[in-house]
C-alpha cells in the first residue's frame, strides 16, 4: 500500500473501524444526539452522561453505521472524552478539527502530541473528501454540549 494511504488507514483506525468501542446505548443519558452525513448516508447517535456536577462527561457512547473512518473516529472520541469537562471536550473539538483541515505544514501538526490517540487521524488532512467522515461524531458532541438536549440532528451538509 502506498504511504499516503497508510497515513489515512493506520492500524489503529482499521481496528476501531472493525471493532468500535462504546458502541452501545447509555440508558438515561443526559444527551442523545443524532448525526447524519447525507453525502454518504452515514448515520449515528451519540450518548453522553454527565457526572453529578453536570460539567464532566461521565460516559460516552455512539451507535451507528458508517465507513471505517467515521466509525473509528466515534469509537476513539468516546474513549477520549470520558472524564473530560465540557470545556476540555469543546477545546479538543477545535484542535481535532484544525488538525484534519489544516495544510500539512501548519503548526497544528506539531501540536498533535496534545491530542494523544486522536493524532492517528492527522492523515485525514491529506484526504479532504474524508474530513466529514472523521468529524461526524465530533459535530454531534459539539451540538450536544453547546446546544443541549434541544439540539436538532446534526448534519455534515
Amino acid at each position: 500500500m502506498t504511504s499516503d494511504l497508510r497515513d489515512l488507514y493506520q492500524d489503529v483506525i482499521l481496528d476501531h473501524g472493525k471493532r468500535p468501542r462504546n458502541a452501545r446505548v447509555i440508558e438515561g443519558a443526559a444527551f442523545v444526539q443524532p448525526a447524519y452525513n447525507p453525502l454518504c448516508g452515514d448515520k449515528g447517535t451519540l450518548y453522553l452522561s454527565m457526572d453529578s456536577t453536570g460539567q464532566k462527561i461521565a460516559d460516552a457512547a455512539y451507535v451507528g453505521h458508517g465507513c471505517s473512518i467515521s466509525t473509528a473516529s466515534a469509537s476513539i472520541m468516546t474513549d477520549f472524552v470520558r472524564g473530560k469537562t465540557r470545556q476540555e471536550a469543546l477545546r479538543t473539538f477545535d484542535l481535532f478539527h484544525d488538525m484534519i483541515t489544516a495544510p500539512p505544514d501548519e503548526a497544528i501538526h506539531r501540536a498533535v502530541e496534545d491530542l494523544g490517540k486522536l493524532s492517528v487521524f492527522s492523515g485525514v488532512a491529506e484526504f479532504p473528501a474524508r474530513v466529514k467522515c472523521a468529524t461526524l461524531a465530533w459535530h454531534a458532541l459539539k451540538a450536544a454540549l453547546t446546544e443541549g438536549p434541544a439540539a436538532g440532528p446534526v448534519s455534515t451538509e
Partner: peptide, 27 residues
C-alpha cells in the same frame, strides 16, 4: 462484504480509479 463504499472509493482512487460511492441521488 465488510467494507463501506467510501473506504473502497478512497482506496480505488489511490489506484487511479474514479468511481462514485454513495446513494447516487437515488436513496
Amino acid at each position: 462484504d465488510g467494507v463501506h463504499p467510501h473506504d473502497a472509493g478512497s482506496i480505488l482512487d489511490y489506484e487511479g480509479v474514479a468511481v462514485r460511492t454513495g446513494h447516487h441521488c437515488a436513496q
